[in-house]
Write a protein that binds this DNA or RNA. Structure first.
Length: 373
RNA sequence: GCUGGUAUGGUCUAGUGGUUAUGAUGAGGGAUUGUGGUUCCUUCGACUCGAGUUCAAUUCUCGGUGCCGGCC
């Protein structure tokens, strides 16, 4: 029984329903990143109001702090963080490209530096899966070998092969685990291979044979040309079942989301919208603006005249500029809210456009405004 | 009244008798995507005024002015 069902199609784009133990999520959708069990600067209540149906947290970080015993005592990560909608957990694979974790890869797994006390931790496919079983997320991700962007073809092939081996061990661990906090937990594989379509396709095929609930695409958003990413999404989809929930990991800019959906992607996560907000970069229908720049110092207009979020209804750019420049915490709270609202609204409009068979028209219209600068 | 110190981008600073005068911050532009208010790239922007010495003064001398301090 598949966890994913397609409801409407419009060219390569489609809408669907992803079924998890905590409800059905309408696709395509975007998950804000809640690494430590919280979307930075946004309260759960605000996320619910913005129609955010799913978050993604990080297995490795939660495992280090506050630790599994406390989260198990709370009754799982959902209960610990009081989030009753769907929840993904990332395996820790993304940490493999971050220098400050100083990753060392062996056949066993990867050793990473614990950022809290600088000790070294071994994360194997088995360990990562057991952590996620214990956290009880609705969708667990396999531990993948995320390659560093720009390496040789041999390097990408090597990481794809290791990713398949590790994925098999994750699957085995997941299938035999008797103590799942969440009995309905799904497990997604992650296809690697960079911009090499043949490696990507073979990796996706091998993963599909292992029987994952879906196969995701990893390793994007770290340097490749956007056109390459869209091409790879198209190519990989040709070898996967139609009802594979195609999760493109790590993507979060408006134009990339729009184009990834246009090529058949269903699901996304990224720290981009919230991180950009913390850096003062704001999404608007007329393109991105930088609220820290003095050009906004005396503008009493909202961030985005077409936006219905409370930040745009109540506050001027001059005020937000002032908060940002004086390091007031509310700057991050308000700007993060706006950026996530913008993305949530975009995804909703995308779903409506697909259902009404007007996706291409919507896309062109959005791009005309967003890229007008 | 007498006297010591000081004066360099918007702000804070380094340094020098001679080519393109440091660095930080700021301002403009760009990047940031499955932990981080992070970090990085790029552009702009200054020698207090007057006189003197000198081939040449932002630099040395004298004076003016501003600022900080000490003494009667």
């Amino acid at each position: 029984m598949s966890c994913f069902e397609i409801t409407h199609e419009n060219l390569l784009a489609r809408t669907g329903l992803l079924k998890t133990a905590h409800g059905k999520i309408e696709t395509p959708f975007f998950m804000p990143v809640a690494t430590k069990g919280s979307v930075k600067n946004i309260a759960h209540g605000q996320l619910r109001k913005m129609d955010i149906d799913c978050l993604i947290s990080n297995a490795f970080i939660n495992y280090l702090k506050p630790g599994l015993s406390l989260i198990e005592k709370a009754g799982g990560l959902h209960k610990f963080m009081s989030w009753d909608k769907s929840l993904f957990t990332d395996s820790g694979g993304f940490q493999l490209i971050l220098d400050h974790f100083n990753p060392k890869i062996t056949e066993k797994g990867v050793t990473l530096t614990n950022p809290f006390d600088k000790s070294r931790e071994l994360i194997s496919p088995e360990v990562s899966t057991k952590i996620q079983n214990s956290l009880g997320s609705d969708v667990a991700m396999v531990l993948d070998h995320q390659p560093i962007f720009g390496k040789s073809r041999a390097n990408y092939l090597d990481s794809a092969i290791r990713t398949i081996e590790w994925a098999e061990r994750c699957k085995k661990t997941h299938d035999t685990n008797e103590n799942k906090t969440n009995k309905g937990q799904l497990l997604f594989g992650i296809a690697q291979g960079g911009n090499h379509a043949d490696i990507r396709k073979n990796c996706a095929l091998a993963l599909n044979k292992l029987g994952f609930d879906s196969v995701a695409l990893g390793g994007f958003g770290i340097g490749e040309a956007q056109e390459d990413m869209y091409r790879i999404i198209r190519e990989v989809k040709t070898v996967l079942p139609k009802n594979n929930c195609t999760y493109v990991m790590g993507i979060g800019s408006p134009i990339e989301l729009l184009n990834a959906v246009a090529n058949g992607a269903d699901c996304f996560d990224s720290a981009y919208p919230t991180r950009m907000a913390r850096h003062g970069k704001i999404f608007t229908h007329g393109g991105t603006i930088q609220i820290n720049k003095s050009i906004h110092k005396d503008s009493f207009d909202p961030l985005d005249k077409e936006c219905a979020c409370f930040v745009c209804k109540e506050h001027s750019k001059a005020y937000l500029h002032h908060l940002f420049k004086t390091y007031e915490q509310n700057a991050h709270i308000l700007l993060s809210h706006h950026n996530i609202h913008f993305i949530a609204k975009l995804m909703k409009q995308i779903r409506i456009a697909i259902k009404e068979r007007e996706f291409d028209k919507f896309k062109k219209n959005f791009e005309r405004g967003y890229l007008s600068k």
